[in-house]
Lab assay of single mutants.
Amino acid sequence: MIVFVRFNSSHGFPVEVDSDTSIFQLKEVVAKRQGVPADQLRVIFAGKELRNDWTVQNCDLDQQSIVHIVQRPWRKGQEMNATGGDDPRNAAGGCEREPQSLTRVDLSSSVLPGDSVGLAVILHTDSRKDSPPAGSPAGRSIYNSFYVYCKGPCQRVQPGKLRVQCSTCRQATLTLTQGPSCWDDVLIPNRMSGECQSPHCPGTSAEFFFKCGAHPTSDKETSVALHLIATNSRNITCITCTDVRSPVLVFQCNSRHVICLDCFHLYCVTRLNDRQFVHDPQLGYSLPCVAGCPNSLIKELHHFRILGEEQYNRYQQYGAEECVLQMGGVLCPRPGCGAGLLPEPDQRKVTCEGGNGLGCGFAFCRECKEAYHEGECSAVFEASGTTTQAYRVDERAAEQARWEAASKETIKKTTKPCPRCHVPVEKNGGCMHMKCPQPQCRLEWCWNCGCEWNRVCMGDHWFDV
């Protein structure tokens, strides 16, 4: 396979590697080409510095992935760790964990309700045991953590790749202090920090972006993250068709209702045909949960890209028209025109101005929308079919299609509260000796007794199943 190397943020060049090629071997190839010592090179990928003893497969490097290699003399205490030698983080029983690669970060837990604080980093599902597709590297999971809308060759929703760059020099040479644990960490600028490894760059702020994971991409090709779309790892039924499908869209209502993408497309087109989208002054033209839940309008309007190009163009047109109407304007009634106009409040005669090729020149009556006339309008008909009709959803289907309910059931079956801080902690095999993952707590306690870890627990039921 081919990976592209950008040395000291210059133009990239291809390097041929195998899945079992080590990072140090990659350094040696680059060092020979650039005429520099291999031990002064640092390989940066997806916000993480890659260790010498890791392989291309370990690092989730795919065909035509772009890695950054910078030349920086080692500072005291760094060289041993980078070589894969006596790194205290690798000691058996050590409590410190390697910062998780962005290629394996899962933010789907952050669609849980606000009262489930902490689960994004504490609760991990076991539903990723799908067998890898044919042709994928051994052991590589097909679980997708992110979804994007690819405006490039795909023109559809695709699995996405999370990447990070330095907000100062805009190069992907920043190593994160810690990985993101929720969508806010990724979507809110300057929320996460790190250290830029580019020479002479003092940058410390992280800037995240997404790429389409279905095809090789260049540095400049980015895609918009659709953070309401998630892999259906909890096997929730769709609120409309009641099938279990994946991926799904999880509405931001209190129940976190789930809808499959085909039904979401149908829901949007139906509402669009009836012009029953909601115009929100802050958000724009949007839709609420299909069950009509309060405070559930979709905030990231790129989710409506699921409509496809033709329907999305209609959505944008109707949204612009609705904006004009909300501002007190009118639409030209001549067939084939429909231009938005903003006449004076007491102006009865409205002319669709033909300047700049935008208007048709038609003069019409503001009251009856017919060709302009003197005197009273002959008839004014009330528009028919403008009443909002509820999208029919079966109550039982709505009850079963809740992301929140599956989460709470998982928590109930696989977790116990920490005796000190009461945060839910998952036990997935292993011994009875637990350690609270909350940095402010870190209590060592017994899963069996529910009390602080002691010699009695150690001698009596340390390794009970």
Rank of each mutant, 00 (worst) to 15 (best):
G84P: 13
S218R: 08
T177D: 15
Q64N: 14
T231D: 09
Q440H: 15
E399M: 14
A46R: 15
G179D: 13
E409Q: 08
F463V: 01
P424F: 08
G357N: 14
N144W: 06
N454D: 04
M80Q: 12
D460E: 05
T217P: 09
G93S: 13
E28W: 03
Q100S: 13
P189F: 04
F7A: 03
C418G: 01
R75S: 13
R140P: 11
V250Q: 04
S19Y: 07
T103M: 09
A401L: 02
A339Y: 15
V36H: 02
P419L: 05
L358T: 14
G160R: 01
R275A: 00
R51C: 09
C166T: 00
F45R: 06
F4T: 08
Y143W: 08
F208P: 02
C263S: 00
V244T: 07
S22R: 11
N190E: 10
L287Y: 00
R6Q: 05
K369E: 06
P288F: 04
K408Y: 09
A92D: 12
W54P: 00
V393E: 04
S407I: 10
I188G: 07
F146M: 06
Y267W: 05
C451W: 15
L325G: 04
D243C: 13
F45W: 05
R245I: 04
A379W: 09
G429Y: 14
R6V: 04
A138V: 12
L358I: 15
W447K: 03
A371E: 14
F277V: 04
L297P: 01
C241A: 00
E370M: 07
S109I: 02
M432T: 06
N81R: 11
G85R: 09
I23E: 01
G118M: 04
R170V: 04
A406G: 10
K299T: 11
S181P: 01
G12M: 05
A339K: 14
D87G: 10
L162P: 00
G319H: 11
C201H: 00
L287N: 00
Y147E: 00
W447T: 04
I44V: 14
G35R: 06
D464N: 15
T125I: 05
I2E: 15
W74P: 14
G203K: 03
E310V: 07
Q100H: 11
A31N: 01
V380W: 08
V250A: 03
A134Q: 11
F251S: 02
F209E: 13
W74L: 14
Y267A: 03
F146A: 03
E367R: 12
G361F: 15
S181T: 12
C289W: 00
G213K: 07
G139M: 13
S19N: 11
P73L: 07
F381H: 07
G308I: 03
C365R: 02
C323P: 04
V105L: 13
L272G: 00
E310F: 11
T222P: 08
V224I: 14
T173Y: 06
W54R: 07
K412I: 12
V3T: 03
G94E: 14
G77D: 14
P437E: 06
W453R: 01
L228M: 14
P37D: 13
L50P: 00
C196M: 01
R334P: 03
P345S: 13
V148F: 00
P14I: 02
E404A: 09
K435Q: 05
E404Q: 08
Y149T: 00
C169A: 01
G139D: 14
Q438I: 03
P73M: 06
H257W: 00
W403C: 03
R72V: 13
A134I: 11
T217W: 08
P419V: 05
K48D: 02
C154F: 00
M327E: 13
P333F: 02
R170H: 15
R420K: 15
E399V: 10
S255C: 07
C201K: 02
Q57I: 06
R442Q: 05
G12A: 15
Y318R: 02
A134N: 09
Q317S: 15
N144T: 09
T173G: 08
G329Q: 03
W453Y: 00
L341V: 12
G328M: 04
P437R: 06
C241R: 00
R170W: 05
A31I: 00
V186C: 06
H422C: 08
K413W: 10
G203D: 02
W183I: 00
R275M: 03
E195W: 08
R51W: 04
E49Q: 03
G355N: 14
S131N: 12
K211I: 13
L107F: 12
Q178Y: 08
Y149Q: 02
E444R: 06
R271I: 03
L342M: 11
A401N: 03
F13G: 00
R275Q: 02
Q155F: 07
C451E: 15
D274H: 04
Y143S: 10
A401S: 09
C446V: 01
N52L: 00
T237Y: 05
H215R: 00
K435F: 12
F362E: 05
A339Q: 10
Y312F: 13
V105C: 15
D115G: 07
W453N: 00
Q326C: 05
P281E: 10
P294K: 07
W403Q: 02
L119A: 15
A363H: 13
L297Y: 05
R396E: 15
A172Q: 14
T83K: 11
W462V: 04
G12C: 06
G430I: 04
K416L: 07
S22Q: 11
E353M: 08
C323S: 15
D460Y: 05
S10H: 14
G459L: 15
V70M: 04
C431N: 15
Y147N: 02
A31K: 00
I23S: 01
V36T: 05
S181Y: 04
Q155V: 05
D115V: 05
D274G: 04
V290R: 04
